[in-house]
Amino acid sequence: MEVQSKRIRARIQRSDEIDVVVLVEKIKEITGYEFRNPNLLRQAFTAHSYLEDDKNETDSYERLEYLGDSVIGYFVAFHHYSTYPDLSVGKLTKLRSANVDGEKLARAALKHGLHRFLNHNKPMLEAQIKQFEEAIVQYPIHSFGLVDTPKALADIVESLVGAVHLDSNSVDRTFQVIDKLLEPMVTPSTLSSNPVSMLFELCQKHKLSIEVLSRSWPKTGVFEYVVGGDVIGRAEYRSKRLVAKSRAAADAYDKLVAKLEAQNRQEQTNIDKTHSEAAQSGDEEQNGEEPTCASKEITSGEPNREEQIENDKDDNIKSEVQSGDVQTNNSSYYSVHSSAPRTKKVADVVNRIWTWLVS
């Protein structure tokens, strides 16, 4: 009775199944390829959950998915090898991974609406697809592990490619379909690393210890990263362990980068302050030196060197005149005293006065 009810439910589900002729036309519009064997195409869009209990997995898309996975991997590897001749093996590997992983293929399925043709019996799948569609808006090219991807979306891209390869029996024709489905592909300029890899590389560069706290994830859904003894990254996501791990790593990476940048700014501030203090100290030492003649004249009002010499001459003459050695006369500049013993001395004084007057 129970088996019969399942078969009835299966027949009811199949009543909504898209007609295979319509399916051929729709896939032709999307890929440019027209299937010669419609049943092969229908198999490519039939999930195992959709089959009755007396059916085996050979009637689902699982074997086509297996084949398509290998064909896509080969195409992407060959395409990158030919397009980027100077790219190292390590970067080629990362680039290939970004273009064949579950998220990239799921994006292709969503972009071309392939999920509309999927026959399945997964009540939660529609909600998961909707959540995925909303999440990738934040990441136009790839989230690199931060978004939970419905596996069924990636599966039908691989199974479709596998079906095209079998039906066409042509590598070139299959490659054309893959190229159209995966456009736009992740390129070296848009390639980014997984947050986990980025975090570990950053810690290694700055010689920081790192520890992953994940034992509580099965119960709490929490992932944490401890860097340099401090919990710096945390994320909670119960549905998928890898997503929780990637989100915690992204959180830790962003916070660590901000912390290191703040440290660098503080160090630069200290350096600038030291330089400023040294320059200020040098200016003060320079200001403490003997001022120039011009500054003496302007700032202190004191006579300059030439004026000081002239003043000294005036003082000497004034002293000598006051002592009686020299006296003034209206008929001449100076009149020598009549005392004979002092004649030579007076003559010397007169000569000095004359020299001063004419100078």
Results as ranks from 00 to 15, higher is better:
322 Q>G: 11
166 L>F: 10
332 S>F: 07
38 P>I: 04
191 L>M: 11
153 L>M: 13
17 E>D: 04
14 R>F: 10
287 N>Q: 12
210 I>R: 06
16 D>N: 13
221 G>R: 06
69 D>F: 02
103 E>P: 03
306 E>Q: 13
312 D>Y: 11
20 V>H: 01
100 V>M: 02
174 T>Y: 04
53 D>W: 09
205 K>T: 10
149 T>A: 04
236 E>Q: 15
263 Q>M: 10
51 L>G: 07
231 V>H: 08
146 L>A: 05
351 N>F: 08
166 L>P: 01
89 V>Y: 05
357 L>Q: 12
120 H>W: 05
47 A>Q: 10
56 N>C: 06
264 N>L: 14
105 L>I: 07
343 T>C: 06
124 M>H: 13
216 S>G: 03
186 V>R: 01
322 Q>S: 15
36 R>Q: 15
314 D>Q: 14
86 D>W: 05
293 C>F: 00
12 I>Q: 06
189 S>L: 11
347 A>H: 10
79 H>G: 03
201 E>D: 15
299 T>K: 12
304 N>Y: 07
325 D>E: 11
85 P>H: 11
90 G>E: 12
358 V>Y: 08
331 S>Q: 13
166 L>A: 02
312 D>K: 15
220 T>C: 00
74 Y>V: 09
125 L>Q: 09
119 N>E: 09
73 G>F: 00
355 T>S: 12
333 Y>D: 13
243 V>H: 06
229 G>T: 10
74 Y>N: 14
234 R>V: 15
168 S>Y: 06
226 V>I: 12
328 T>V: 13
133 E>K: 15
10 A>E: 13
248 A>H: 09
42 R>P: 05
230 D>W: 03
171 V>K: 11
71 V>R: 02
267 E>V: 11
41 L>M: 06
272 D>L: 14
275 H>S: 09
352 R>E: 09
22 V>L: 07
152 A>S: 14
259 K>S: 14
35 F>A: 01
69 D>Q: 08
11 R>Q: 15
175 F>D: 06
293 C>I: 02
36 R>I: 09
152 A>K: 07
100 V>F: 01
140 P>G: 02
348 D>P: 01
70 S>L: 14
35 F>D: 02
90 G>F: 02
284 E>I: 14
301 G>A: 03
234 R>Y: 10
141 I>G: 02
207 K>E: 08
